[in-house]
Amino acid sequence: MAQSDPSDIVQPISQQSPTAPQPIVIQNYPSSSLGWRILAAIGWMGVFLCVPIILGQAITSASYYDTTEGVSEKYVSGSKSADDKIAIINVKGVIMEGEGYIRKQIDLVKEDKDVKAVVVRVDSPGGTVTGSDYILHHLKELKKERDIPLVVSMGSMATSGGYYVAMAVENEKDAIFAEPTTTTGSIGVIIPHYNISGLMKEYNVEDDSIMSHPRKQMLTMTREMPEEHREILQEYVNQAFGRFKDIVKEGRPDFAANPEKLDVLATGEIFTANQALNNGLVDKIGFVEEAVARAAELASIDPKTSRVVTYEQPTALFDLGLAQGKAMNWDKMLELSAPKAYYISSYLPPVMSSFPFGSR
């Protein structure tokens, strides 16, 4: 049998010489059908529709779990790159329910483990009894939970409920600083009441309200207040006043040892910074920088190598009460007409609380 010539044997492409020309294989793919194109278009439309929905759900979820509502940290002084922080919590304006900006600041500090000390900056004439007590409670909880020192810096005014909040220092020494021009004090309670019954008689207007009991109208402006009702309300005020003085004794231990001294001061009278210092209502005359230095000292950190921060409140578009085109916020007006006890240095607390500078 004749042997075949090796040159006649066709080798696989992979075994051919590298210099040998490579065959070009061309495959023809069928063109996409109209059906496939429609399916692809539908798929892309689904993607475009789903992305906004998914993003919207993510934003909604983030908003649901976000308790800060736009309150953000801002650098004040010290080292910008430092880990240790001294936080300044602002209590400004008329105090109403206590929720809102002030509570959000407290929550931010509570969650930030880099904060080693707190300065509460008080610039407030006070507000409602409940709102002031709410803020005091949460400041104390912050101190207890984080085990960090707290110092108070008083601004232009820290009266009544503003002074009440300052008692969050408890028995810490040299912890309340008042600026040279600070107005403080006004330790007392008031339930505003106005009597327009004489005016109504003059214009022949009668209050013909139907009530379950005469005491339901104890604070009505349209009738003379009976002595029985006045005694009931006075007892209510006395109890709120007693709690105020007890809180002051916690923050000013010297008054606990000498309650008669506090009774002399707790008349609703306001005091200058020097008068407050001489009477033991504050510890030092100094600005916020001195308060920061004291907080750093109590925390055993250096204020120059720490980062001092505060918290900014976002500016609402309709802060003047004209939101959504409403000329009058009737639910707020109704709220203001309800009887409330106030720790406040003012003769028109309900009117003041309706303005946008309220700290809420």
Rank of each mutant, 00 (worst) to 15 (best):
P21M: 03
T272C: 03
S300R: 12
V94P: 09
V152H: 01
I53Q: 06
G162I: 01
K143T: 10
T310D: 09
S209L: 07
L55G: 10
D207K: 12
A2Q: 11
P149M: 04
E206Q: 15
V109Y: 01
V115E: 00
M328V: 15
R223C: 04
E228D: 15
M1S: 15
I38N: 06
A338E: 14
D331I: 13
H213S: 14
Q57L: 15
A62M: 10
Y343H: 12
L219F: 05
Y347R: 08
T310K: 08
I42F: 15
Y29E: 05
T305K: 14
K249E: 12
P349M: 08
A341C: 03
G131T: 02
S346L: 02
Q57V: 15
L142Q: 05
K85Y: 12
R37F: 06
V205D: 05
A158T: 07
P180Q: 04
I190C: 02
L265C: 08
P180F: 04
R252T: 00
S7V: 03
M157D: 00
M328K: 10
N90F: 02
A338L: 13
K340T: 01
L39F: 13
S212E: 12
H213Y: 14
I148L: 06
Q234R: 05
T130Y: 11
G268F: 08
E228T: 13
Y134P: 01
L108F: 00
Y75R: 05
A299L: 06
Y194M: 13
T128A: 09
K340R: 15
P30F: 10
K113N: 13
L277V: 08
P12R: 09
T183V: 11
M333F: 14
E97T: 10
S156F: 03
N329I: 07
N238E: 11
V205R: 06
G280L: 07
I53W: 14
Y194W: 13
G93L: 10
G100M: 08
N258V: 02
S160P: 07
I247V: 15
K85W: 03
A117H: 01
L320Q: 15
A266Q: 08
T19V: 11
V248T: 10
P253K: 02
T128V: 04
T220E: 00
E312M: 12
L219A: 07
S63Y: 10
S354C: 04
S124N: 10
R243V: 14
A296Y: 06
Y101T: 03
G242N: 15
L108I: 11
D147V: 06
S72F: 02
R103G: 01
F287S: 12
T19W: 10
S14G: 00
Y101C: 02
S337Q: 12
G100Y: 05
L55K: 13
P192M: 07
N171Q: 14
P6G: 03
